[in-house]
């Protein structure tokens, strides 16, 4: 116990104040300096413009909360996943709710040799997602964990930090009101025959409220 406590204390004590102030979660009114968020482009300029760092945050958990299947929620991610697999970096789908359809993935530009699919029960899914994130050999881990609790979310966020991987979690939009340790939360919703993407939380977001992005006409 004491060893762990000491370790924690050390990791808290080591960084200097300047380093602490670099954290994207801290912004001082006096500074002009935008906190840096490491990110990878979403491949969609209008979405990049809405996200701090200009894309999906790296080494962090992102949540995509969607109202229904088939709103284009997975399409959001495809350009990034395609780019990763083409660079021979691994992408993992954990517990997808339907069969990921190989011809469509191929058409989206994904190199299927670097895409893996994990079938798992809900508890195993959270475990395997954490393992993949932590391992440091996966570029992105995408999970469908409908009933995940706050503690597990926190674990995933930490695992993503440890492995410097891009973690994306798909959940139902009913969870939008709950608190979450995720660095980025997007809501995909539909009204008047169009799909909108709304940034509901983002670490390091400077400007005020941005209008939702209109995705599918």
């Amino acid at each position: 116990m004491s060893a762990i406590a000491a370790e924690v204390q050390q990791s808290i004590a080591t960084p200097s104040l300047a380093q602490v102030l670099e954290h994207p979660g801290i912004w001082r009114r006096s500074s002009q300096h935008q906190p840096t968020v490491r990110a990878i482009s979403t491949g969609m300029p209008s979405l990049d413009a809405r996200l701090p760092g200009g894309g999906w945050p790296l080494g962090a958990l992102s949540e995509i909360l969607f109202e229904n299947d088939g709103l284009g929620e997975l399409e959001l991610l495809m350009p990034t996943l395609a780019a990763m697999t083409r660079e021979h970096r691994r992408v993992i789908f954990v517990a997808p709710p339907y069969q990921p359809y190989a011809p469509a993935l191929q058409a989206a530009g994904v190199d299927l040799r670097f895409l893996h699919e994990i079938h798992a029960t809900p508890t195993e899914a959270a475990w395997s997602m954490e393992q993949c994130l932590r391992s440091g050999c996966c570029a992105a881990v995408v999970g469908w964990l409908p009933d995940i609790d706050y503690r597990s979310l926190r674990r995933l966020q930490l695992a993503a930090e440890t492995g410097d991987a891009c973690a994306v979690l798909y959940r139902s939009a009913v969870h939008a009101a709950q608190t979450s340790p995720a660095a980025l939360r997007l809501k995909v919703s539909n009204s008047n025959e169009a799909t909108y993407v709304d940034v509901i939380k983002s670490r390091g977001l400077m400007q005020g409220v941005t209008p939702p992005m209109r995705m599918r006409a």
């Binding site: 990921p100 190989a102 993935l105 299927l112 895409l115 699919e117 994990i118 079938h119 475990w127 993949c132």
Partner: peptide, 18 residues
Amino acid sequence: ERLRARMGESALRQLSAV
């Protein structure tokens, strides 16, 4: 190896287009 050890051989799969 670690994932298969815990979840079984068929848990981890890849896709091919035909």
